[in-house]
Simulated assay, not measured.
Amino acid sequence: MSEMLLDLQGVHTHIGAYHILHGVDLQVPRAQLTMLLGRNGAGKTTTLRTIMGLWQASQGKVSFAGRDITRLRTPQIAELGIAYVPENMGIFSDLTVKENMLLAARAARTADDIDTQRLEWIFQLFPAVQKFWNHPAGKLSGGQKQMLAVARAIVEPRELLIVDEPSKGLAPAIINNMIDAFAELKSRGVTILLVEQNLNFAQRLGDHVAVMDNGRLVHAGRMAAFSEDVQLQQRLLGLAL
């Protein structure tokens, strides 16, 4: 198996009085796409937020590129080359698309300072970002906001992209656009961890799959093998790909 870029070992997370993660062991291979699946409430979003330091692990270890990041603050984790797109996308509605992108391009003081070649590449992936460049982000459709959220996450080179339910509520044409974009990112060597409920989306994109249930990892393996095992899918997810 490829070198692991991200490695969670025995991670527990408490939120107030609630014990959400119960010893999660999750490995994400470098330059591949790992799907994190599971029923609602299984602990997927909590896992992502724990990786990003938004919630602190109460026990266990999170390692990135061989470095222990368990106790780092979220800005420190982001500076290591990890980008996170939450389920709510985190768009600044009152700012324009350009201003949203500029906030994420930390090395740039003005939009003219953003790497031109990289911006052109992002416009090819997500034409709506260019089309609505000077429009308030709050006026965009749900699909356009999701495109902006991912575009913002990759406006600077990242080693790891973490995205929570990118296809949620999107039209099929937008989902296909997202699939193409993530495939292009993967081809450029970006490691990707996706939480997803759309199993067709997961099957078309994933190299690896990890399944959570009740705060624990209950399955990990190759997506191709998981896609062929209908009984396993039904046992773990209650449905089949």
Rank of each mutant, 00 (worst) to 15 (best):
G81Q: 06
A111I: 13
A137S: 15
A31G: 09
A83D: 01
N200Q: 15
E99I: 09
L102I: 08
V97Q: 03
L236V: 04
E196L: 13
G81D: 01
Q130P: 00
Y18A: 15
T74C: 09
H135A: 12
T47V: 11
G66Y: 05
T96S: 14
I82F: 07
K186E: 02
L241G: 08
Q234M: 13
A42E: 01
N88C: 05
A151H: 03
Q117N: 08
V62G: 09
L95D: 02
G60A: 12
L237D: 03
L161I: 14
A57T: 11
M212V: 05
D94Y: 14
V230G: 05
G169T: 08
G189N: 04
L37A: 07
S227V: 07
L148Q: 03
D115Y: 06
T47C: 11
M89K: 15
A57R: 05
G90Q: 06
K168P: 01
L199C: 12
E228F: 00
Q56Y: 00
P136I: 13
P172K: 11
E87R: 13
R106K: 10
Q117K: 04
Q124N: 10
Q117C: 00
G189M: 03
G138P: 08
K61R: 15
I192Y: 02
A210N: 05
W121L: 00
I91K: 04
T34S: 10
V155I: 14
N177A: 11
T70M: 06
R71H: 14
R49H: 01
L185N: 07
G238P: 10
I162Y: 00
A149W: 00
L148K: 04
M1Y: 13
A202F: 01
D113W: 08
I162E: 02
L185G: 07
E165P: 09
I114S: 00
V218S: 05
F226P: 02
G138H: 13
S167V: 09
L48P: 04
M35H: 01
V28E: 06
P75V: 09
G215P: 02
F126A: 00
L103S: 06
T45V: 07
L237I: 08
M101G: 06
I122L: 07
P166R: 12
Q9Y: 11
G53S: 08
A181T: 07
K145N: 08
Q231K: 13
A17T: 03
I175K: 11
L119P: 01
R71L: 14
I122K: 03
A17F: 00
M212T: 06
A181L: 11
R204Y: 00
L48G: 06
S141R: 01
